[in-house]
């Protein structure tokens, strides 16, 4: 475990804490895409099936359980909490899951390291994670009103990916056997999706204003 990886994981964790904090304190999920949250939950469920058959470290196990529990927690709030569910932008959050899920599933069946159920599901989760933010970005563009916490949530989610890239570069040089072309490609795509958002986020931040998208 290197510092980039740890910082990346913490950034990921922090983004989830932010979103829970936003929902819990404001009793509102306005501006949040339930589609994206559902996709992330699917990502965690398909990737962390390995909790049942492989053990890496206590750190990994605990983090996986936190990610699983928190993503189901967010979904529960958005769907069932009496006040929170009324603030959900149902009409604006229209992105269809299958537009992302089906191509990712097909790609995982074709491009993978091993044609086994668990490996294909794991690969599917890698591909899906890369694009799962899209419904959220579309919702942002549409509603244009981005509150601070939602902006920070996406910022830290993007930072997590950028830090993971540094982690991969570090591991590439320090671990000769560590070669994860498929994960790297997906990670680059994922980070690229945030580029536009980062640009506007930093611009608004520099100007000392609230984030505004064009």
């Amino acid at each position: 475990m290197n510092l980039f990886r740890l910082a990346g994981d913490m950034s990921h964790l922090f983004s989830i804490v932010l979103i829970l904090l936003k929902i819990y304190t404001s009793k509102s999920c306005a501006g949040l895409s339930m589609k994206t949250q559902e996709l992330y939950t699917l990502v965690f469920v398909t990737r962390y099936l390995d909790l049942f058959y492989s053990y890496v470290s206590l750190y990994n196990t605990v983090m996986k359980l936190i990610f699983l529990a928190s993503s189901f927690g967010i979904l529960w709030y958005m769907r069932y909490h009496k006040q929170v569910k009324q603030t959900y932008d149902r009409e604006q959050d229209t992105f269809r899951h299958y537009i992302l899920v089906v191509p990712c599933a097909v790609l995982a069946l074709i491009v993978n390291n091993e044609l086994s159920v668990t490996e294909v599901l794991w690969t599917f989760s890698i591909y899906l994670e890369a694009v799962a933010i899209l419904p959220q970005l579309v919702l942002l563009q549409r509603t244009k009103n981005v509150d601070n916490l939602t902006g920070q949530y996406i910022f830290f989610l993007g930072a997590y990916r950028a830090l993971y890239i540094l982690n991969w570069i570090y591991r590439y040089w320090t671990e000769p056997k560590y070669r994860q072309y498929l994960v790297w490609a997906a990670g680059l795509v994922q980070t690229g999706l945030y580029a536009d958002f980062f640009y506007y986020y930093l611009k608004s931040w520099q100007a000392g204003e609230k984030l505004r998208l064009p």
Binding site: V56, N60, M63, N113, Y164, K177, Y178
Partner: peptide, 10 residues
């Protein structure tokens, strides 16, 4: 086993 080395990430 090497192909699974990425599985130690989250």
């Amino acid at each position: 086993e090497e192909s699974r080395s990425g599985h130690d990430e989250l």
